[in-house]
Design a protein around this nucleic acid. Structure first.
Lengths: 155, 155
DNA sequence: CCTTGTACCATGATATCCCATAAGAACCCG
DNA sequence: CGGGTTCTTATGGGATATCATGGTACAAGG
């Protein structure tokens, strides 16, 4: 079960605690850090979540930018400066920092949205609207995906 | 039996449980996930079903898009957010989430429809009508299929 | 001493597992 | 070729474990 799949809405209590969906926990279990790695999205009102492994792969991305370039400087700041490691308690919950709650506009509930290698945390109602918008745009733009070859079809 | 073939109608009990046809189970047996991967169809009142391998091959497609690009963001949301992993119990049944039952309009029974690499789940009566409609249109438009490439011709 | 944040415990709801039954198909043996 | 038998499959119900969630106690820091 190596992927983050599906959308799950859980409650956020007044301490900012929220249960990480069990399937996501399973995905993160084999990581070096017992918890979630997260940072505010810089494209929308959501929190990006992942495991430590993904941080390392992001770093490989920034490694391909020129050292001292403006781009590299901005990118590394955008990504890594906002990152928080959120360990879970014995029951699989994490505590969302106030800044995350504010950025995503959370109020009482949080939607965990699987995106394959990563996931996002949204205010549920906003996520629903966003999803609808993405669907609408996909229809009209005829979004397609590069044809993925099935393993058995490979040379 | 590497393909999903044929149509099978099974009952959905009040817990939302339904038996996956034995031949479909055989097709899914060798997967990394012991169960079915499913998501609501974008285009009609049906549930799309497949194995985890199909998800993994879709991810290979999204992996080729730039991280943080709008395209990558939309694609991953579109594909992975609506997916549910439905593990089967010891008897080869899965439980359909309420949202799936609602989307497909299921009531007491579900039709598993083989579509080759994937399959769909329909409300039986609706599926029958849909099938008829597709047949009718095919007759009148004389639908054709591209000739299958031989293995040595593949990229 | 008070505040903040972390670990632990309790509970209800939900889903998972397990068994029991029945119907049908395949099979074997006469 | 027919009849009985054994498996597989589908389906229902009930027991059990897991998960989400709220609360409380404790520790650390100011």
């Amino acid at each position: 079960m190596p992927l983050f799949l599906g959308t799950f809405v859980n409650k956020v209590d007044k301490k900012g605690r929220v249960s990480v969906p069990a399937t996501f926990r399973a995905r993160l279990a084999a990581q070096s850090f017992p918890g979630v790695v997260a940072y505010p999205s810089f494209t929308g009102p959501a929190i990006e979540g992942c495991g430590m492994d993904h941080m390392e792969s992001l770093m490989q991305g920034t490694d391909r930018l020129d050292v001292f370039s403006e781009e590299q400087d901005e990118m590394t700041t955008l990504i890594f400066a906002g990152v928080r490691e959120l360990p879970w308690d014995g029951d699989g919950r994490i505590v969302l920092p106030e800044e995350f709650i504010a950025h995503a506009g959370l109020a009482g509930a949080a939607a965990f949205v699987g995106k394959g290698r990563t996931f996002q945390i949204w205010e549920p109602e906003r996520q629903r609207a966003h999803m609808e918008e993405v669907r609408r745009r996909a229809m009209q733009k005829r979004l397609t995906l590069p044809a993925p070859l099935k393993p058995e079809d490979r040379a």
